[in-house]
């Protein structure tokens, strides 16, 4: 690293890596922005929502119902918000130099993330519509699916953090990757809150 640090001005505040990571998150926001735009355009085009009038007789005969379950995703939402709190507690721990606290909170966050994913997959299996069943199914599975992939990415990220903290790589002075991971996890959480609100709450 020394070679690259030459001829740079040492600055206060964010490190280069953190700044780069935040820019990466900005691009992620734009990606989800595109998906949300598609969803809202579909809703404004539709005469009613869910657009049951679009179902063909064959789809109706096959038992397609454009309905989502509320309580299971609601519990999943609570778990995901909780995991956002726990990963932050991990960051606070390592800021005070408490490595075992970081390990514990990261582990809990990983478990919560995994439970969220399992619940989402179970929820998918209980729904009576598929990705091909009108724009309703397409937007539902695309939005939640891409979010799910990001949850998976976050779980892997936290797994790396866990492994590195078990190897003793983080200290009170040096734990930037932990903070980046928590940023990412909060971002995933915020996207889910937006998704939960649009897909499950707004009628």
């Amino acid at each position: 690293m020394a070679a690259h640090a030459v001829a740079t001005q040492e600055k206060q505040g964010l490190s280069n890596g953190m700044l780069g990571f935040i820019l990466f998150l900005a691009s992620e926001v734009m990606f989800f922005g595109g998906l949300f735009a598609a969803y809202f355009i579909a809703r404004s085009d539709a005469r009613e929502w869910p657009p049951v009038y679009l179902l063909t007789p064959e789809q109706v005969a096959a038992g397609v119902k454009l309905e989502v379950e509320f309580w299971l995703p609601f519990i999943a939402t609570i778990l995901l918000i909780t995991s956002s709190v726990t990963i932050q507690l991990g960051v606070f721990s390592i800021q005070r130099g408490n490595r075992s606290g970081l390990i514990r909170w990261t582990f809990i966050s990983i478990v919560l993330g995994l439970v969220f994913l399992v619940m989402q997959v179970y929820d998918y299996s209980q729904l009576h519509f598929g990705i091909g069943d009108t724009i309703y199914g397409t937007t539902f599975y695309t939005l939640t699916g891409f979010h799910g992939l990001h949850v998976l990415g976050g779980v892997i990220f936290m797994g790396i953090i866990l492994a590195r903290s078990l190897a003793g790589q983080f200290t009170a002075a040096n734990h930037e990757a932990v903070e980046a991971c928590s940023f990412y996890w909060h971002f995933v959480d915020v996207v889910w809150i937006a998704l939960f609100t649009t897909l499950y709450i707004i009628p």
Partner: peptide, 15 residues
């Protein structure tokens, strides 16, 4: 089998 750009499935060709 998505319908993002298929008006028959409720999608939008201009999207």
């Amino acid at each position: 089998g998505g319908s993002f750009f298929d008006p028959n499935g409720g999608g939008n060709a201009i999207l």
